[in-house]
Nucleic acid binder design. Structure first.
Length: 433
RNA sequence: GGAGGGAUGGCAGAGUGGUCUAAUGCGCCGGUUUUGAAAACCGGUGACCGCAAGGUCCGGGGGUUCGAAUCCCUCUCCCUCCGCCA
């Protein structure tokens, strides 16, 4: 959420952001907000004048009564004021609710470093790590490998739950578990994050806090008449750990990581990536969240990105880092880097991580503040990034490390997390060693 | 699931219809003192809205009243006990 003062004082900056982000100008409506704010301030003034009168009169009545005098005419008068106050307060509550819901539709302002552009084609490549691997044979896709090695089962997942799910089986499941532990250990032992086990269900307040509600409500699975939702990312519970809290400056920065299942309807993506692991309704993800002082958030984004990249470096997977242009930037983000890993079988780059700086956008919504050394209350800045999304890492891993024989050579770096197991995925019942 | 108790500023905690403009303590900030620090003493110190005067806020919402932290209803959360249970 943007600061109302900021919107009032810099409406053009906000309008510019809406345009550059290709947001719906009907819903993200600055003029309507300014008009509603005017109405609200007029009502506040009217109500306050009356309240002042009422307070003075009530005090007087108290005095009269203590002195044993009659106060009935005064009381009748004040009663009328009270009725007016109540009517004004009702109107004010309505206008304020309207204003808040309008404000919730305003996107965050992009950082000045973000290139202006319409869509993903205008994103800017920042760096590349490794080269796409060349094969002396035609590499298979993870779907083909998954079937021949019996490690990913899509038809049976569809039978159980519907389309857009997968079953990891044998090495497929084991490898995913090893990757999760590898990532969590890296982030906790070497990058300074505190691991959290969090609910995969969150309420409306939390969803509003991180910005999923109102804009993305229809992309989530609601529970119990939509009082709670399955989380689309652990960003929601991890950031909302501190919802409504007043932190001490010495508490900052806070680094959290956690592994959860994530659930997405992918409502707008019907017909896209329908086969395989690339786009599924339920997937595992290791997430990193940072809660930091405002002056540090830009540098914290860079280190967050490096933390995510480190996973791919150690797995020796080819990737590139892309700075999203304004048109591709998400609603609440001020600046986002995507990490895209190369999938040799599919022959395309896959987004395995998205690292964003939200500035104070989420902090305002979730009311996460801290008291500075000077005693002043300020909003924190929040950041988050995937570290990483599991299914797509599995895709790039098995496609990258496949052999001419149709087996998969698992990178050595994972061996500590595959205790007792070999490092080659072979056809069923011939697991090596 | 049943019964009871509770929610007050950054924290602890008093306050059961009228100077509550919320006591007091801790913490925090400043000062005095000190070579420096601690201690002691003195002073200051909530959030939000408003250009300001001022107004609002005692878990959320609603009600009673001239007037609500205080009374009533309701929701949420926490605690104690009982039951059930991974």
């Amino acid at each position: 959420m943007l600061d109302l003062h900021f919107v009032r004082e810099h409406p053009d900056v906000v309008r510019d952001a809406i345009k550059k982000k290709r947001e719906n100008e009907e819903k993200a409506n600055v003029s309507k907000i300014l008009a509603t704010d005017e109405r609200r301030r007029a009502l506040v003034q009217q109500a306050e004048v009356l309240k002042r009168e009422r307070n003075a009169a009530s005090e007087e009545i108290g005095k009269l009564k203590r002195e044993g005098k009659d106060a009935s005419t005064r009381m009748a008068e004040v009663r009328r004021i009270g009725d007016d106050v109540q009517a004004l307060d009702r109107q004010l509550a309505e206008v304020e609710a309207e204003l808040t819901s309008l404000l919730e539709w305003l996107p965050n302002i992009p950082n000045a470093k973000v290139p202006v552009g319409d869509d993903a084609t205008q994103n800017k490549e920042i760096r590349k790590h490794g080269e796409p691997r060349r094969f002396p044979f035609k590499p298979k896709t993870h779907i083909e490998l998954g079937a021949s090695l019996d490690v990913f089962d899509f038809p049976r997942a569809t039978k159980i739950a519907g389309s857009g799910f997968y079953v990891g089986k044998g090495w497929g499941a084991r490898l995913e578990r090893a990757l999760i532990n590898f990532m969590l250990d890296l982030h906790t032992r070497e990058h300074g994050y505190v691991e959290c086990q969090v609910p995969v269900l969150s309420n409306r307040t939390s969803m509003r806090g991180t910005g999923q509600i109102p804009k993305l409500e229809s992309d989530m699975y609601g529970i119990d008449g939509s009082t709670q939702f399955l989380i689309p990312t652990a960003e929601v519970p991890l950031t909302n750990l501190h919802n409504g809290e007043m932190l001490k400056e010495s508490d900052l920065p806070l680094y959290y990581t956690g592994h959860t299942a994530c659930f997405r309807r992918e409502a707008g993506a019907a017909g896209k990536d329908t086969a395989g692991l690339v786009r599924v309704h339920q997937f595992n993800k290791v997430e990193m969240v940072k809660i930091v002082r405002p002056e540090e958030s830009e540098a914290e984004l860079e280190s967050l990105l490096l933390n995510a990249e480190e996973v791919l470096k150690r797995l020796r997977i080819t990737y590139r880092v892309v700075l999203l242009c304004t048109g591709d930037l998400s609603f609440g983000s001020a600046m986002t880097y995507d990490i895209e890993a190369w999938a040799p079988g599919l022959e395309r780059w896959l987004e395995v991580s998205s690292c964003s700086n939200f500035g104070d956008f989420q902090a305002r919504r979730a009311n996460i503040r801290y008291r500075g050394a000077d005693g002043k209350v300020k909003f924190v800045h929040t950041l988050n990034g995937s570290g990483l999304a599991l299914p797509r890492v599995l895709v790039t891993l098995v496609e990258t490390y496949q052999t001419a024989e149709g087996t998969v050579q698992i990178p050595d770096v994972l061996s500590p997390w595959l205790a007792g197991g070999g490092l080659v995925i072979d056809a069923p019942k011939r697991i090596v060693p």
